[in-house]
Every structure is written in C-alpha cells, then in structure tokens.
Design a protein around this nucleic acid. Structure first.
Lengths: 292, 292
DNA sequence: CATGGTCTCTGACTTTAGTCAGATATCGGT
DNA sequence: ACCGATATCTGACTAAAGTCAGAGACCATG
C-alpha cells in the first residue's frame, strides 16, 4: 500500500478500534470532560495549570470542577501563597475513582493484547512503540532561543544536575569551559523544553551543552539538534566543527561517531573532557534537519 | 516499558495526536456526524445499511440526511424494489465535497509523514501496517456455522469464483469431491464473513474449503481457521488429519507446510488436487487458536 | 383486502460541550 | 489605600449529539 494510503487506513482503523473501546471502557456514567479532569488531577493540582494542559475554557473547567466537587471526588481550596489560584485535591473517593479509571485503562490495553498469541503481542507492542516514537518526534520543535531564557535555563539546570550525577568527579559549572556566545538551540515537546545544544562562536565553532531529557530519549532529538547546530555553523561559513565529551556519556559518543565525527587529540583544556572530536563541514550540506 | 503500559501510552498518544488532527483537518463547518455520513455515502447507498454501519439512531440519521439534502450534497429517494428503504445518491456538489474531505484526509496523513526523513517514514508506515494488522486480526471471530447458512454461502461463492479464476482448468463444484458433512467454520470481521474452512467427517478427517477473502489476507486468519479445525478433529478423537490442494494455491501450501503438514501420495481422486498432505495430531494439543 | 411487520420520518426532549461577558476576589507595586 | 493585572466563578447562551415515542407509508402474506 502506498504510504499516504497506509497512514490514512491506520488513522481510520486505530481511531475507530481504540476510540470505540475508550468510550466503552472509560464511561463511568460521567461526562468525558470530567473524566479527563479527574485523570489529570493528582499530577496537576493547580486549576490554572489544568486549564492550560487540557486547553479548556475557564468557565467550563470551573463548572466541571463543581460537578466533581458535588460528587465528593475533589476539593478545591484557595492556594497557600496566592489565594487567587485554587488548588485541587482528590478526596479518598476521588482516589478510588481514579484507580477505577486506571484499572479500566489497563483492561482496555489488555483487551487489545488478549486475542493475540505471544508472538503477536511482542510484535504489536514493538510496533506501537515505534509508531508512538515517530509520531511524537514529529512534533518536537527546535528553535534558537535566548541562552538566558526560560527554556534554556530549564534545560541547563537539568543537564548540569545529570552530569554532576554521572561524571566520576561530579560537575561544577565554574570549573568547566563556558559557553559564552553563539547559538543556543532548545527542543520543545508540546511547549515543554526537552533538550538543548549550543554552538559556541570560535574558529572552528564548537558544539556545547548537548542534552536531551531522559523522557524524550530515543526520539532522534539529539541528532536533530546536532544537525541544526551544524546547519548554523555552515551558514556562518565554518568548514569544520569541534566538540569534546566525557567518557561517561557513551550515548553521546555513539551519536557523534555515527554523525561523522572523528576522534582527535585534545584541542582545549576542558577539565571534564575525555574525548575530542571534529567533523569537516561541506558548505552545500546545510540540509533540512529532519529525523529518523 | 511493560506491555500493558506501552499499549496504554500508545492509546493515549495516538488518540490525542491523530484525534486532534482529525478534528482540525476534517472540520469543514459541518458537524462531524454529517461528515461521517458523507464519507460512507458512495460505498453505501442504503439508509438502513448506513445506520447499521455508523450505529446511529434512525431519527438522528434522518435529520443528518435532511441537513445534507438541504445543502444540496445528497438526494434521498425511495428504493427501486422496496419503496420503504431509501437510497442515497451524492449530487455533483456532494461528490466535490467528498473529494475535499478525501483531500483533507490525505493532508492529515502527509502532515504525519512530513516532519520525518525517508528512513523514519518507511519505519512509521511499516509499524503502522503492523499495528493495524494486529489490531484488526484481534477482532476476527471464528465460529462453527451452518454450512448452508448465509456466512458459509457467501464465503463458498467467493471461494469457488476465485479458484475458477485461478485453477488452470477452472473449477466446477459438480466435478470436485464434496464437503457433505462435518464442521464448517466461518471467520467474520465486524460481522462480515471473510474466510472459511471445513472439516469433512472421514477417517481420518479432511480439511476442505479453506479460503480467506483477499481483503483480509495477512491477518493470520487462515492459520487460525486451520488451528480451529484441527482442534475439532482432536476433540473428535482423530489422530491424523488430511487435505489436498491445487498447485495454483501456493500461499495455502506454504501455510500447510509451516503448520506441520507433510506431503504424501494421493489418497483420493480429487480431480483438482495436485498435492496431498497429512499431519499427525497429538491428543494433548487442542490449543487455543490465537494468532499472530 | 386486512394485518402484522418493516422502514423512515417528525416532534419533543436531554445531555454534553463549549463560548462569552461580566462579577468578584486577590495580588504586586506605588 | 489605590490601581491595574490576574484567577476564578456565575449566568446566559449556542451547537452538536443523541434518545424516544409515535405517525405514516409500504411490504409480504394469508
């Protein structure tokens, strides 16, 4: 079957099959909107955040909360520090209801696996993983952002925390060579920053601060960030690009090697570096940084 | 990730991602119900059938049709032979609107493929095919039915037509050895018969009339029918099972060989047979006939 | 040609989902 | 204490989706 036709057929089959089951399993005599709210409460406790997450009208959400409150599933109180913001908590009954929802969701999943034999199940789960990964990676957006902005700061904080954990000797920003000026790229998934990378202005320019959030690994985000930074380097007229990395970051090394980087002698005194890489850039190759 | 959790995650991601896109792409200022009807009209022209297919209340569907009629997209007339049943036909404007819907559906599919590179696209389409196949095969239902019933007759008619086409010498039911008594299994997908197989009472019992509709091939239906017939044979106390097949049916031969059948000398005078197979049944192996 | 059953339609209704315009309470800063 | 901004709520509204009970036309059959 031709690709577009296959995708259409998939959309149709899956939304019908899964959609119909969702309706039957997740119907607990409550409107769907209320279920969605019940679902998110617990992870989110703030009305404002909930509204943003579910993209609901404030009046509508307010009414849904009133319904849940009337059923004794949640309590809504004014927030501790800002009394305009309201905090939602699940009551015991609410937690029980959420557990029921959870159970039904598991039942739904099992009902899809149940008619298959072992081999079919493995195949299905594997294929679902692939579809999910590729559909998700399709909505990751890269953009050059202010290195001091919210997105960049959020990424760097998590990045430094992670390498402090993973490097044998820990990590301190004060000791490392800085990223002072250049391009800072942030990858976002549904608005949330989930990865970053920097191109430090130098001759040749250097890749720095490459990081992808653990929950977003395997989506090809790292490769896209790298390609995007290389694209910037080419646009700036660079003919080569360099980077250094720590021995603990094996997955990063694999990425660099498979992206055409070759190991060279140390070209700087970065105390946290164990390996140094370089890659020759060909001016024509400022390609569209799309994924696998 | 654990299988059930992976399936849940898939359900969530896909219904959100595809569902949201469907809403935005397929919104042509018409309620969704009307779109669904517009979509099916063409394939189905009968109000009654449409109602069954979309599972709608007759009053509700009637009103939807009135809306589409008012927009000049369809005309509803009394049926030719039974004037209670009404026939729907698309007007020129209706066909144009359907084409637009079709175009949007293609756009949606393309928007999923577009952010990916060649390798990602191939992977996604392949994984979608697998998911679709396995989800669909999960709802194929096998049941022993009356060999003279609707389902059996529908299958046999298509089966005989197909082999008449494929056999070098054509096929005539009068010439072939009959299936006179035994078990007749029909496979159905959403109620539609899509395959069959028979276990002819004999010593040892014989497999006959194995067929899967072209549109349902690749779902493992043939293998399930075969397993189901073997299960019946074992239940009846048989220790072996036999079958014959024509040289034109290469996919059937592959199925039999991979299911443990071995070729033997001709054991009957079936004029359409080129190969004869047998399989030894072990009494304990009346297994659950689940898939890949 | 009467009769029971089938098919579609209409009218009256409900629930769900959502929008929009204020009203009200609270915050941070001056 | 006052001002503008922010967060939530209430009331009034609309559209979509769906349900249910007949009404009316039509069919097959005795």
């Amino acid at each position: 079957m031709e690709p577009v036709a296959q995708v259409r057929s998939f959309n149709r089959t899956v939304t019908e099959r899964v959609g119909a089951l969702m309706d039957s399993y997740l119907d607990l005599g409550r409107p769907l909107g209320a279920n969605r709210v019940l679902w998110e409460v617990g992870a989110v406790t703030d009305v404002r955040e909930l509204r943003a997450r579910l993209d609901l009208d404030s009046g509508y959400l307010s009414r849904l909360l009133r319904t849940l409150e009337a059923e004794g599933l949640v309590t809504v109180r004014a927030g501790a520090d800002d009394r305009r913001r309201r905090t939602i908590t699940l009551t015991a009954a609410g937690r029980a209801e959420r557990a029921r929802l959870d159970e039904r969701s598991d039942d739904l999943a099992r009902s899809l696996l149940e008619p298959l034999n072992e081999r079919g199940r493995t195949q299905l789960v594997e294929a679902m993983r692939t579809v999910e990964r590729l559909l998700t990676s399709g909505i990751v957006e890269l953009a050059a952002e202010d290195p001091a902005g919210d997105g960049a700061r959020a990424c760097l904080q998590r990045y430094f925390a992670e390498i402090d954990e993973r490097f044998e000797a820990g990590f301190s920003e004060d000791v490392a060579l800085p990223f002072d000026s250049g391009v800072f790229v942030v990858a976002r998934l549904r608005g949330e920053p989930i990865g970053c990378g920097a191109l430090k202005t130098a001759d040749p320019p250097e890749i720095k601060r490459m990081w992808v959030a653990p929950e977003a690994r395997g989506l090809g985000v790292g490769r896209r960030i790298l390609a995007e930074l290389e694209r910037h380097a080419v646009l700036e007229g660079a003919t080569a690009i360099r980077l250094e990395t720590n021995r603990a970051l094996t997955e990063a090394q694999a990425l660099y090697r498979s992206s055409g980087y070759v190991e060279v002698e140390a070209f700087n005194a970065e105390p946290y570096a164990d390996y140094w890489f370089t890659k020759t850039l060909t001016p024509g190759t400022a390609t569209n940084p799309s994924l696998p």
